[in-house]
Amino acid sequence: MRQPLLAVAIGLVIVALYSRAGGFDLLPDPIGWALVLGALRTITHRVELSARSVLWVLGIGALLASAVLWWPSVHDWFADADPALGWAIDLPSLTFCAVLCHALSVQARAAGETFATGWLAWTAIGFVLSALAPAVVIGGGVESLRDPAGIVTGLSQVSLFVLCLAYAARAWAGAAESPRDAGE
């Protein structure tokens, strides 16, 4: 794959979009996560082994959680269950996105791209806040933070999508060198 961050962007859009017919999601999240995981090996070839391992574990966890939730009866059960269970089932995907942003920011920093480093680091922080917010809102009963937490989550998702598109052609993001560039 020449630009694996494009596959990540498409996969994340499939995960984020939700359209039900007959109880089933027409854009199954497992397909999106499969695209993301398929691109992960190329993107993280320069990432240290521990971070790469964490990304794989979280990505597979998100894939498995989304596969379980694709079934209407399971999805409805989680929708009616305690909100903390919904948070727990979303935690692998939010944490994956945070770790991915951090890993990409480290790669961008190593390539000397400070602008990309900053945006990716802030997006990672947004995902960390998104992952932790339910503990405060649900566990701490701070309902006034529910809407701001939702906004941070949405902005983090959009930011990651845009950043994947913006930096897809960068070598530090796993893009293959074009034959034209190799000849120069």
Rank of each mutant, 00 (worst) to 15 (best):
V47H: 04
W77H: 11
L55A: 00
H75K: 09
D80R: 09
V68I: 13
L49G: 05
R46M: 06
D76Y: 09
W71T: 00
L49H: 13
L69I: 02
P72Q: 07
E48W: 11
F78Q: 11
W70K: 04
P72T: 08
L58S: 03
S50C: 06
S50P: 03
E48K: 11
L63W: 08
S73W: 12
L64M: 13
W71G: 00
W70R: 09
A65K: 08
R46D: 12
T44F: 02
V57M: 05
A65G: 12
A79Q: 07
W77M: 08
I60A: 05
L63F: 07
S73A: 15
W71R: 00
L64D: 06
L63Q: 01
S66G: 13
V54F: 05
S53V: 01
S66A: 15
S53N: 01
I60L: 06
V54L: 13
A62Q: 00
E48P: 03
S73P: 10
A62M: 03
W70A: 08
V68E: 08
P72Y: 05
I60R: 00
D76T: 13
S73D: 14
S50E: 14
W71K: 00
S53M: 01
S50L: 14
A51C: 11
R46H: 11
L58W: 03
R52S: 08
V54W: 11
H75F: 11
T44G: 05
L69H: 03
L58Q: 03
R46K: 06
W70F: 11
L69F: 02
A62E: 02
L63H: 00
P72G: 08
P72N: 05
A65R: 09
R46A: 10
V74F: 13
F78V: 15
V57L: 12
L49W: 07
D80E: 05
A79F: 02
E48G: 12
V47Y: 04
R52W: 08
D80G: 10
V68F: 12
L64G: 06
F78H: 14
L63I: 00
S66N: 12
A51V: 15
W56K: 02
T44R: 03
V74S: 13
L58A: 04
A51I: 15
L69Q: 06
S50W: 13
A51W: 15
L49A: 15
S50K: 14
A65Y: 06
W56A: 03
L55Y: 01
L69G: 02
G61Y: 07
H75G: 08
V68T: 10
W56P: 01
